[in-house]
Each structure stands twice: as C-alpha cells, then as structure tokens.
Amino acid sequence: MKTVFVLEGILLTTVFYGCNRTEEGTSPTYKDLTEAVYASGSVFPRNEYKVLANADGILQQQLVSEGDSVKRNQLVFVLEGITQGAREQAAANIYRQSQANLNTNSPVLAELEAQLQTAQTRLANDSVNYVRYRDLYQQNATSKAELERVQLAYQTSRNDFAARRSSLQRTRNQLYVDLQNSRSQYIASGQDQGNTRIRSFVDGKVYEISKEPGEVVRRNDQLALIGSGREVFVQLAVDESDFGKIRVGQDVIVKADVYPDKVFKAIVRKIYPKLNRVDQSFRVDADFVGELPDAYYGLTVEANIVISQKNRVLTIPKSYVVGNDSVWVKENGEARKIRIEKGAENFDLVQVKGGLNEKSIVVNPE
C-alpha cells in the first residue's frame, strides 16, 4: 500500500491556511503542497562482496565473527585441502625428475650421447674404408661391386649419425619443455595451497558467516559477506506507475522503524532501467546526506522521493476526486459532476489548476 508520511519541520511539511468546510461540503483552500513518491527499501553497505572459497577443503579456522571489523588483506579463513598435499608432492616429484632429465648427468641424454658417439665412430671407420676402396678401384685393384658395397656402408653410417644427432637435439628440446611445464605445475600447486588461506579484499565489516569450522567447503562456496562498516546507501523499490517521475538528484526523506524519532535525508544517485516483474517495481539508489544510520545490513526503511514543491496553491482533499479528474460540486442547491484540471498531488491533497475557485462548494462523493 502506498503511503506518503508527513514530517514536521522538513520538506514534506504541509502548511494549512484554513479549511472552508461546511456541513454541505468543503471549499478549495490555499496550501503549500509537496508532491512525493512513496518507496520502500533497505540500507546496504558500500563495497559489499561475498567471500568465496578458492579451493576444495575443510574449514579449519574461522578467524572472524559477525560484526567484526576487518582490514584489507587480513586473514579471515583457513582451509585444509582434502587432496592438496598429495597434488603438491606429486608436482614436486615431477619437477625434480624433469630437472634430473636435463642436467649434465641425465641418464636419458647420456644414453643418446653414447649412441651418437658409436655412430660417429662407425662413420669415421666407414669413411676411411670407402676412401681406401675408392683408391684401389682407381688402380684396378678391386672390383666395382666391392666399391659399391663399401660406399653403401659409408652412406648408411652417415645417415645413422645424422639421425642420432637430430634425435639427441630433439630429446633435449623436449626435456626442456617438460621442465618448464612441470615447473609451472609445481608453482600452481603452491598457489593452490595459498588459496586455502582466505583474506579480505577491503577494509570493512563482517555481516554474515556462512560456514563453520569442520564443514566441507567446495570451490566458490560462500564463506562470508563483507562490506563497508561506515559507508551505507539506501536501495529503494519504486512502483512502476510512479517511476517516470523519478530523476537523479531529487531529495529523499527516509525513516526507519529502529529510529522512530529520526528522519534521514538522502539524494537519488542512480536509477536502474530494469523492471522487477515480481513486484512491478524499479530499483532506485540514494546516498545519505548528513547523518547516517548505523551500518545494519538490510535495515528496512520507508521513503518519500520529493518530486515537486508548490507554495500556496489551491487544493482540495484527494478523497473528493472522482475517477481521475472529476468532482461533485453544489450549485443552487443541486449537486452536479464537473471536470477539473489537476496539478501536483500527494496522498492527501490535489492541486486544482482549473475548474474550481475558493468559493466553490465541493461535495464528498461518499
């Protein structure tokens, strides 16, 4: 239900200059009229964020409680990784093995280098043998078949040497890549270990704890809700029918049940264009001006967003309006229905811009 509350001494004060009520009806009177849109909402902290787990594990330590103040980078939770230790040890073992495979005493490289040396020795022998047989053939001291056999052996040895040299270089390159990959995995496993130590991103206040020590925590589970402990704003829901009247910079009067004797002032900061189809309302955010309420998360408030202020305008009670723009008036002892031109209005009063004057007698339609 929409309500416009009246607050003495502030923007929504309505000054009455007299009421010409008679037994037969009432006459329009001049009054100060403040037009406002009612909105309900809640108070929330600035810089609000959900503290999420960055790894799977068991909540080992809860270092803060609801209501505590925290500093940026302060340790707030510690998780015990379920399999983290095993993964880190496996990554360390692979990294050490990769280092051993590439160092000067590497058994993998030593075997390939031995094979390369054997191939080099065989190539040298076959090369000498080929030169000797070539000279003998030129002297007609051996047959062409023998020369071709020795030449084939020399070419085979040369190809084998080239292939083993290429294999050694290729293996050395692959071992280097494996070393870099295993090093990255080892560093990443150490970072995962760091993910079990959850810290606050901001200076603020702990509003909610979602997990307790001993509970199993999955990656991206919410652990807590943290927000600014000093800076707060009011989030309002404005009815769809009134949304077109709202503008950034308009004054807002805010009341909260927990402060029955206080009125807070705010100003519209942001208007959201998406309709909430659940309650047919739009979201409007407002910043407090001057005194702030205490930083209670979700504190329920009611507000009036001031649309316009009219000084000494002709008004009638809103309850006398029939439909959208008609009233019953009494003329010459008879009642008849006429149309009026309306101006600003609030929950109680309607500005009359045309159709009535101070001498008109408006009849209550009830």
Rank of each mutant, 00 (worst) to 15 (best):
S182W: 05
I198R: 05
I198F: 03
R183D: 07
T121K: 11
Q97F: 02
I82M: 07
Q97P: 00
I187Y: 02
I198E: 07
I94D: 14
T118V: 12
N125W: 08
Y154S: 13
E111I: 07
Q180F: 02
K71E: 14
Q97R: 11
L79S: 01
L179E: 10
D178K: 09
E88F: 08
N173R: 04
R164M: 15
Q74A: 07
F161S: 15
R134F: 08
L102D: 02
I198Y: 06
T142V: 15
R87C: 03
N93W: 08
A124V: 07
S167M: 14
Q191N: 13
V78L: 10
L147H: 03
Y186K: 08
N105A: 13
K71N: 10
N105L: 10
V150S: 04
Q97Y: 03
N105Q: 13
Q169W: 04
S182Y: 07
E111D: 13
R158A: 15
G85P: 00
E88L: 14
G81Y: 03
E111N: 13
T156Q: 15
A100L: 14
A163I: 12
V177I: 14
E148H: 04
A119C: 06
K71W: 01
L102M: 10
V78W: 03
Y137D: 02
E146S: 12
A91K: 04
I94W: 04
E113M: 12
L175G: 10
A100N: 09
Q174V: 05
Q138M: 10
K144A: 15
N101P: 03
S157A: 15
A90T: 11
A124I: 05
Q169P: 00
V150R: 12
